[in-house]
Design a protein around this nucleic acid. Structure first.
Lengths: 223, 223
DNA sequence: GTCGATGAAATTGTTGACAATATCTCCGAT
DNA sequence: ATCGGAGATATTGTCAACAATTTCATCGAC
């Protein structure tokens, strides 16, 4: 691994992954300007690759593309985050409902395991683990539901929320609040009760919205 | 309007619009291969513009992009259409709910007008008019709801459904079936009853799903 | 007659140079 | 000191030629 520039479609993938990661890690501030040549240098790709990567990220709503003025990391206000989460609420509600109808024995076992693992993690105060299980749970529900369209929409929406998600998960007392909500979703799916599963998923995300509303706006731009 | 090649971003826009329209008009069959040079010629644009346009359309799910093998018009199976409509159901449910909470006097007036215009159109058997009003209604509800995120998701999903939508609207007896459902949505919003509005929107789209399921698969490829 | 290989044609992917535009810097006028 | 404008620089957008790959047609062997 050295000086070789990743070229072509490989390069594009590299840049997309790189920017995604930098965004998730908080290495790129919202509103920050993204200069094509700089990106090309840091990721050892060509400007063409960077250009295409930016378009892809713009389509996913992670980056804002202004003609003749380049790309910026998209700024997502608290209000935006709320609107996004409202969509997540109904879409995850749909997924939970269908998951309750369709979960196989195998799925149920995995679900049960995630449930107990979550309780353990919260007991032991392992926030990182809990957060990871959280993601796994939401992903599993979407996958089990067979709602591939909803799943991809949720993917997109979640991508836009990275900044807020890690902010929320670290809130003191948050796990104690969300754990029973996750339990309720799991239990409803295990019980094969679609209506309850949908209600539980929505209730969970409504609570996320409440938390978001109590969030101070994202650190005023250090342009 | 002559021999001038639309160049650059203008060209890209031209191509995107052109393909979108051709798709809506049924001039491009699903699965049809889209060759860059051909498109560049027919829309009088450069191959670069075409390339970018295809990426944009791919991000919107209208076109399938396979590396090294070019672009094809995306084939949307009946099952896909059902999954899409299930998402639409919950998203439009959300919009209807919020619209019921937020509609201003002005909005209500427009809504009422659309309602009566719909009834007139059905009475007179003006299918085209009814179909246009249908679109306007769904758009208005989304806009009034203030759910900009849901609105853009719905835009994307609707774009993928063009083929099926016109197929459904022409079904005999369909207007008689959908008119009261539209009325129910409008009335619930006018009454300021969020829960009823959401139920009505969902019920309407559940009925669309039923119709879709009773649809013969999209005409077996005339590749 | 079918299958596979070989070469030709068509098509997509990549690159680097160039053009157009925006942004910044510096300077002078008020 | 502030504002505005001219030039310089930085940055994005465009293009056409070239490279790589796939697809298609032709031909020969079994």
């Amino acid at each position: 691994m050295g000086q070789n520039r990743a070229t072509g479609q490989a390069g594009r993938g590299t840049v997309v992954r790189g920017i995604r990661q930098a965004l998730a890690a908080g290495d790129m501030a919202p509103g920050q300007r993204l200069v094509e040549q700089e990106l090309a240098d840091t990721f050892h790709a060509t400007r063409s690759s960077v250009r295409e990567a930016l378009q892809e990220l713009a389509a996913d709503g992670l980056v804002e593309l202004i003609p003749r003025r380049g790309a910026r990391v998209r700024v997502i206000s608290v209000e935006d985050a709320v609107l996004i989460t409202e969509c997540r609420a109904v879409l995850e509600g749909l997924c939970a409902r269908r998951a309750a109808e369709r979960a196989t024995e195998k799925d149920r076992t995995v679900l049960r395991d995630i449930g107990t693992a979550m309780e353990d993690a919260v007991d032991r105060g392992e926030l990182e683990t809990y957060s990871a299980l959280n993601r796994r749970l939401h992903e599993l529900v979407a996958r089990v539901s067979g709602q591939t369209v909803a799943e991809s929409l949720l993917d997109r929406l979640n991508g836009q929320m990275v900044r807020y998600q890690f902010r929320l998960a670290l809130r003191p007392g948050r796990p104690t609040q969300s754990l029973p909500q996750h339990r309720a979703i799991i239990d409803a799916i295990l019980a094969g009760d679609p209506a309850a599963a949908e209600r539980a998923a929505r209730a969970h995300l409504d609570s996320v919205i409440e938390q978001l509303r109590a969030t101070p706006g994202p650190s005023p731009h250090l342009t």
